[in-house]
Design a protein around this nucleic acid. Structure first.
Lengths: 197, 197
DNA sequence: CTAAAAACTGACCAAATGGTCAAGTTTTTT
DNA sequence: AAAAAACTTGACCATTTGGTCAGTTTTTAG
């Protein structure tokens, strides 16, 4: 599965070959077919695994009633995922770029429900005057876009920042703080004049 | 080229087949090889074309001396590109996900220089007290991430928003305004308490 | 008009692909 | 201890792949 995730991340579903996966896993190709049947089924297994990780990362959001802390924690956990499982993120990104043929149902049911739910929570906070008015769904979209980009497009940020051996822990730390700053300022949860750390 | 862009966007370099491109272009496969030689060369031609469009979209930024107007205009032009050339954006995204093997030089020279340059401009604005202090490079990263996501991951946003026939012009309009709000609030250029339009 | 250059294409090929299978080996069950 | 079940794998196959090429058609130049 790990080998498959890597190869699918690097080449997409169509471009990945079962022999490349077999080579990466250091197993004969026939063995992989014994366990997973077809390339399609293996891909689905990898995708299901990723969706599980994704969904479980969502659970954290919304248990506390403090918008600033909740949003910061969520951003931090999303960034942790971008750092620790970039390949998973890339497989997912590949699937989305292709129009999400295999996960459309998941997107428009479970994921949509989750977003609707959390957006309602954010709207409550706004109504209670706990944060500035924002488009709650788009706020969630922004958090996803800003955090996922550090996994999916690492090569771009790495090149622009002049890191020859990929992004460092410090880069991720800085990125995380900047995202938190942006999101909290958008929500009016930290004074804009404050210097960034 | 148009057909190739579409197929490469859908399947990535490895997954795209010359016959699929030929079919899409309604031409015999041999004809495509006559003009472009190899699949690799065709892909490079497509990529070069996209890089051109990208670079020219950058030119606008920085001519005026009004941060709010400049940033808004830039966000608007990036969103225009996400809407009008989503396939180009996806080809580029595919390349980045794969580690940018073919455009690494471009990223760490031209693009890096451009970012260094514009970040310096933003730093000037900050020094002049025209906007709140922010990490200028990360501000640019945020704008790119927030705008490109509407091309690359359209399928995701479309599913979550419950749009059965893809995103509408209005969705793009709302997204654009939300991104502008987020960026301007981050920069302290609009009061946070203001209601969003 | 003509001949040469350029553009085009159907038919083909070697290599790579996803997948199968029979013949084993190892592990589990009884 | 032996039978059954599960696992492993080298060799193989039909199909698809990127790419070629000989021959035809179209365009250009004198």
């Amino acid at each position: 599965m790990k080998a498959a995730e890597k190869v699918f991340a690097e080449s997409g579903f169509r471009g990945a070959t079962t022999s490349a996966i077999a080579l990466e896993a250091d197993l004969p190709k026939a063995n992989i077919h014994y366990y997973f049947g077809t390339k399609e089924k293996l891909y689905r297994a990898v995708l299901d695994d990723i969706v599980d990780v994704w969904l479980s990362s969502f659970k954290g959001l919304g248990e506390s009633d403090d918008p600033a802390a909740t949003l910061s924690d969520y951003i931090r956990s999303k960034m942790e995922l971008s750092k620790s499982r970039p390949e998973a993120s890339r497989v997912f990104a590949n699937e989305l770029i292709r129009g999400a043929p295999r996960i459309n149902t998941y997107l428009s049911t479970e994921l949509k429900d989750w977003v609707d739910d959390k957006a309602a929570l954010i709207d409550t906070w706004i109504d209670q005057g706990k944060m500035a008015p924002v488009d709650s769904k788009h706020l969630i979209f922004h958090i996803w876009a800003l955090t996922q980009t550090w996994a999916d497009f690492e090569s771009q940020w790495s090149a622009i920042l002049g890191r020859e051996n990929g992004l460092t822990d410090e880069d991720f730390e800085v990125a995380t703080n900047n995202i938190i700053t942006t999101v909290l300022r958008t929500c009016g949860l930290i004074p804009v004049s404050a210097r960034q750390q």
